[in-house]
Amino acid sequence: MFGFKTESLFGQTKQLEREIDQFVDILSEVGLVFKSIVSLYLNNGNSDKFDGMVEQVRGMESKADKITKEVERTLYEETLIPDARSDVLRLLEHMDELIGMYQGNCYHFSIQKPDFPKEFHRDLISLCETVVNCVESLCLTVRSFFRDTKSVRDDAHKVTFYEKESDIQFSSLARKIFDSKLPLDQKMHLRYFVEKIDRICDQAEDIADEIQIYAIKRSI
């Protein structure tokens, strides 16, 4: 009526809600797959299963890209959430970068094949778990931003907690690597991997900080 497409507006809204939920699901799932990939690599090295899982991450990243573009197009074409549109789009872009970081790490394992001695396995897996927990908390924060802004602060606090935890684990592991008898080039190579994994938490924390600001802006 009068150029105001009520039915299609609500249809579009539900579709967009589903897509944003799906996007957050992907971020969460990529983390879980990444954790399995690292364990698998440490136990079996490069295997067919490992390659399959890396391919799975690539597929997820590409799906997330498609969703970001679709959400961006719909938000602008239908002039939806004019007051929060730029915040939402920036949020999706930064989350997409996070998925990209997971994917990058997977590729680096696959291409560079780092040789982690057994003594570091437990610490590396533990670091990966903390990183995944951190991103999981970020996913909760994002969902809260869309549905329940009063919970954003609590959820964002968990992200900060895991980020600090990850920093401690990173420092400890890096110290162990450099205290070991490994040759310097291998030490540098391993440190590079540990640092790249830890950076995921830094990015997650930055996004959580942004969300807290967006949530304040969302108050009526």
Partner: peptide, 22 residues
């Protein structure tokens, strides 16, 4: 009143936007 209602409501930002337009 509206602020109080929205505080205890868990409407998705997009759904809230659609209702507000209407």
């Amino acid at each position: 009143i509206t602020k109080r209602i929205l505080r205890y409501n868990t409407l998705h930002i997009l759904r809230l936007d659609a209702y507000t337009r209407l």
